[in-house]
Amino acid sequence: MKEFLQLVVVGVSTGSAYALVGIGMVLIFRTTGIVNFAQGSFAVLGGLFMVALVDDIHGLVAGLAAVLVVAFIGSLVGFVAVGFRHRTTPLASLIITLGIALLITSLNLLAFGDRPHTYPTIFDRAWDIGGVLVQPQYVLVAGVTLLAALLLTLGLQRTIAGQALVACADSRRAAELVGIDVRAVAVVAFAVSAGLSALGWVLLTPVDPVNYDSDVRIAINGFAAAAFGGLASIRLAYVGGLVLGVAQQLVVGYADKIPGLGQQARQYELAAALVIMLVLIGWRARNEVHE
């Protein structure tokens, strides 16, 4: 039981970070129709920038700077992906984001090398809650993530700028007709999404080191989280991320116990995640039909 809870704690935390990536994908997909494959790169950049900055400046400032810089990079990616003219199709945009993801991966390799990067957590010891050891960093990731998701939802519902984003998602044609420049909104959606993804890995890196090529794993997990809600719902993407994170930890945790699999279990993490996700998506689709 203790081991189970331990795995759940870790799962909720990594799942939260996946959830932020998934939410970013939903935001971009809903406002632009683009599936953004560079979403994982934003997360990796967040983690790497944090590692690079945190030695020299206060962690809070470093984190904020990392998030803002990645948000800015995100806006540039959005600008390119949406296209300079109105004629870029979602498929072309998707391929552009894929190209940008590859480019960022190569640049990361050049700039940061091929070893895993991490930085020490500010918390000096784990909490012992009824025998379950909880790393405060995990709680921090889960808490900040939840707060960010709530703030985003509130912003989209309650502020006029947020409503303009939702308007583009609801009806791009009508949004254009009232005078909203849909391309400009797309750039903002990319920036916000990039910032969110970066935030996840700024916080997660102390407990889950980041590699120059972690973006593939992150993008796939984030996409799976987003797909849980049909790429349409922020709330379901959040739930999807948590479910995915926990399920993955459980699979990896207990696969260790299967003789002959042992140390290789980690390699199956991603495959396990995808199988779990397919099952869940299928299950959700079935329930929707029966409702």
């Binding site: 009806s171 949004a175 007709l177």
Partner: peptide
């Protein structure tokens, strides 16, 4: 072509917002 998920009032206000939109959101 209303904005289906937004409240009626937000739909109306976006009509005024769009008029202020030149090049970017901020």
């Amino acid at each position: 072509q209303v904005f289906p998920t937004l409240p009626v009032e937000a739909n109306l206000l976006l009509g005024a917002y769009g008029r202020e939109f030149r090049h970017e959101l901020v």
